[in-house]
C-alpha cells in the first residue's frame, strides 16, 4: 500500500475530542443529585431518613414505603430513562440530518404516537393486551408507523438523495396524522381530556411495569446510538465528502433513525410526547463543552436524565397536590435556559 508510511511517532495526538472527565463526573453527580431531589421531594412529605431507610431495606411505615416504592422511585427511574433517551435520540437525529433543529419527533414520531394513543383512548378505553395497557402499545406502533411512512414517502419523492425530501415527508405525515387525531378528538369529546393529557406528556401511571416495558428498547437504542459516535462525527462534513471516505450516509442514517425511533417510540409510549428535551440538552452540551458526538452523546444521556427528573419533580410539586403536565415544565424552563446559553456563547454558531 502506498501512501504515508507510519514510522515511530508519538501516540498522543493533540486536539482529539475526549469526554472531559470533569464534565462526565459532573453529569454523574447531576444525575445522582437530581435523583436524590426526585425521591425526597413530592406532594407527600416523607423525611430523608425514611427515604434512606426505604432504599436500604430498613423498616419503614408501610404507607410511606408503598408511596416510595410503588409511586415515587419508579417515577424517578422513568424520568431518567425518558430524559436520557429523548436527549440522545435528539442528538442522533441532529447528527444524521445535519440539521440543528432536528428533534426526535422530526419524522412524525410524536404525531404517530399521539394518533395511536388517541385511537386507543377513544376506541379501546382501558383495554389491555397480554396484560399490558393498549395505550402505550398503540403509541409505540403509531410512532414507528409514522417514521416508517415518512421514510417510504421520502424515498419515493427524492430517492433519499437529500434529507430535505425525508424531512418534508415527515412534515406531511405529521400533518396528516394530526388531522386524523384532531378529527377523532372532535368527534369523541368524551375522551378528549384523556388524549390531550396524554399528548402533553406525563409520567403518572406507569410504575415499575412501565420501566420493565421500555427498558429493552431504550437499552438497544442507546447502545446502537453510542456505537455510532464516530460515524456521527464523520457526518459533520459534506455528504459527498462522507461518501468518499467510504461511509454510506444512507445506511448510517437509516440505522440511526431506526435506533433513535425505537427508543423515542418506547419512551413516548409511557411518557407522552414530552417536548424540547431532545433539542435543548444536546445543544447546550455542544455550546458549553464540545460538538463531537463522542462528547455530546454520553453527556446528553446524563444531563437529559437529570433534567427530566427535575422537570418531573417540579411537575408534581409546583401546584401540589395537583400536577402540571411535564411538557409544560420542559418547555417553560427549557426555552429561556436555552436562550441564555445561546446568548452567553454567541461566538459559537449553530
Amino acid at each position: 500500500m502506498l501512501g504515508v508510511r507510519a514510522r515511530a511517532a508519538p501516540l498522543a495526538l493533540a486536539g482529539l475530542p475526549r469526554l472531559p472527565w470533569l464534565w462526565a463526573a459532573g453529569g454523574v453527580v447531576a444525575l445522582l443529585a437530581s435523583a436524590a431531589v426526585g425521591v425526597l421531594v413530592g406532594p407527600v412529605h416523607i423525611s430523608p431518613g425514611t427515604v434512606l431507610q426505604a432504599l436500604i431495606g430498613g423498616s419503614v411505615d408501610p404507607g410511606q414505603a408503598n408511596i416510595l416504592w410503588s409511586l415515587r422511585f419508579p417515577r424517578v427511574v422513568l424520568g431518567a430513562i425518558v430524559g436520557g433517551t429523548l436527549a440522545i435520540a435528539g442528538a442522533a437525529y441532529q447528527g444524521v440530518f445535519r440539521n440543528p433543529l432536528a428533534d426526535p419527533y422530526l419524522l412524525g414520531a410524536a404525531a404517530g404516537a399521539n394518533l395511536g394513543a388517541t385511537f386507543a383512548v377513544t376506541f379501546a378505553p382501558g383495554a389491555s393486551l397480554i396484560g399490558v395497557n393498549v395505550v402505550p402499545m398503540a403509541a409505540f406502533v403509531g410512532a414507528g408507523a409514522a417514521v416508517a411512512g415518512a421514510y417510504a414517502l421520502g424515498r419515493t419523492v427524492s430517492g433519499l438523495r437529500s434529507t430535505t425530501g425525508l424531512i418534508l415527508a415527515g412534515v406531511a405525515i405529521a400533518a396528516f396524522f394530526n388531522s386524523i387525531e384532531t378529527y377523532i378528538q372532535q368527534t369523541h369529546p368524551a375522551s378528549i381530556r384523556e388524549s390531550y393529557s396524554w399528548i402533553l406528556g406525563r409520567l403518572v401511571t406507569a410504575g415499575w411495569d412501565g420501566v420493565v416495558l421500555v427498558l429493552p428498547y431504550v437499552v438497544l437504542s442507546a447502545a446502537v446510538i453510542f456505537l455510532h459516535r464516530r460515524l456521527l462525527d464523520a457526518l459533520m462534513v459534506g455528504e459527498d465528502e462522507v461518501t468518499s471516505l467510504g461511509i454510506s450516509v444512507r445506511r448510517v442514517r437509516l440505522i440511526v433513525v431506526i435506533a433513535a425511533t425505537l427508543g423515542t417510540a418506547a419512551v413516548v409510549a409511557i411518557g407522552g410526547t414530552i417536548a424540547f428535551v431532545g433539542i435543548i440538552i444536546p445543544h447546550t452540551i455542544r455550546l458549553l463543552v464540545n460538538r463531537s458526538y463522542r462528547v455530546v452523546i454520553p453527556l446528553s444521556l446524563l444531563f437529559g436524565a437529570s433534567f427530566l427528573i427535575l422537570a418531573d419533580t417540579a411537575a408534581r410539586t409546583v401546584v401540589a397536590p395537583a400536577e402540571l403536565p411535564i411538557g409544560v415544565i420542559t418547555a417553560f424552563v427549557g426555552a429561556p435556559f436555552f436562550i441564555a446559553v445561546l446568548r452567553s456563547t454567541r461566538a459559537a454558531a449553530l
Binding site: G42, V44, N66, V319, P321, A322, E323
Partner: peptide, 21 residues
C-alpha cells in the same frame, strides 16, 4: 387540597391520592 394555581379540575398526583387514603 389542590390550591394555589390549581384549577377547579386539577390533575392530582398519584402519591397524593394514595396518601390521602
Amino acid at each position: 387540597s389542590a390550591t394555589g394555581g390549581a384549577p377547579d379540575y386539577p390533575q392530582l398526583s398519584a402519591e397524593f391520592i394514595v396518601s390521602s387514603n
